[in-house]
């Protein structure tokens, strides 16, 4: 294939991939007078942020809530859940890679399968269980679910990463009298930053983007994460499509930022955790 053809093909495809984002952005920037489904592709005549404002703040007169509250819910949910599951994954990965015991591989296999299960198959008892420990309907309950069901993927990434840390280092630290925590602290952690970055980016994006747990565990609009609120916004006939688009952009913003700023780690996370969708 000649070079020119490659460039042409790539450019055309890139344009197609960017089309939805183009609509997303120009629609958000149009003023209400200008918004028209039948002139969806036209550029905005003037710069206006009122659509974003309405998606963010809601509209009292039209009777729908803005996404601001849900955005912060998502932050309150995603940050602790990400940190906790990274920590848990790091500990598990450390033990599984450096403190092997009989049956560790079998256990790992069971763990791996847990990564792929369709969550539909645990939702019904999950609701009951969260209810009985008083976490149902709260952000804490969502954090709990994300941390528990994040164990497999975070453990996998850390285990694979720690497996590359030479055993001699561990043995040497042991000879120096370091215990299990000492080794973790002096040998593993100093080299863990890339793995933490990968796991945290991975968990951040999947938790932020999650919908299923949100819609099942938090039925109250006031505690729902932004994906659920966005879907409700889009499902409500009274909300204009441009406001829905602006809301979609708001919901996409944090993960897009992570992608733009930490793209390198994002990519590595995808490939490292490439066992999970």
């Amino acid at each position: 294939m000649p070079r020119v053809a490659t460039y042409t093909a790539l450019t055309v495809l890139a344009a197609i991939y960017l089309l939805p984002i183009y609509v997303l952005i120009i629609t958000g920037l149009k003023s209400f007078e200008e918004v028209n489904l039948y002139r969806m592709w036209d550029l905005p005549a003037a710069f206006s942020l009122e659509t974003f404002a309405r998606a963010w703040l809601g509209s009292e007169s039209q009777g729908f809530r803005g996404l601001s509250n849900n955005f912060w819910n998502s932050v309150r949910l995603t940050v602790p859940a990400t940190l906790l599951s990274a920590l848990l994954g790091s500990i598990n990965g450390y033990v599984l890679s450096k403190w092997k015991f009989r049956g560790a591989d079998g256990l790992f296999m069971l763990l791996l399968f847990g990564m792929f299960i369709p969550y539909q198959s645990i939702l019904i008892p999950l609701v009951q269980a969260l209810r009985s420990i008083g976490l149902y309907g709260s952000i804490a309950g969502l954090i709990f679910a994300h941390v528990v069901y994040g164990i497999p993927i975070t453990t996998l990434i850390f285990r694979n990463y720690y497996a590359t840390v030479p055993g001699e280092l561990v043995e040497a630290a042991k000879i120096d009298g370091a215990g299990i925590f000492g080794i973790y602290k002096s040998v593993m952690l100093p080299v863990s930053m890339p793995a933490f970055a990968v796991v945290m980016i991975w968990q951040f994006t999947s938790i932020w983007n999650d919908f299923l747990f949100g819609v099942i565990i938090t039925p109250r609009p006031a505690v729902q994460p932004i994906t659920v609120a966005l879907n409700n916004l889009a499902g409500s006939y009274i909300v204009e499509w441009n406001v829905q688009m602006a809301g979609a952009l708001l919901a996409a913003l944090p993960t897009m930022l992570v992608y733009i700023l930490l793209g390198r780690y994002f990519m590595r996370g995808l490939l490292a955790g490439s066992l999970k969708g």
């Binding site: 309150r76 940050v79 602790p80 940190l83 906790l84 920590l87 709260s138 804490a140 954090i143």
Partner: peptide, 8 residues
């Protein structure tokens, strides 16, 4: 993170 959970 514990503080954050506490807050929630």
């Amino acid at each position: 993170s514990l503080l954050l959970i506490g807050a929630i």
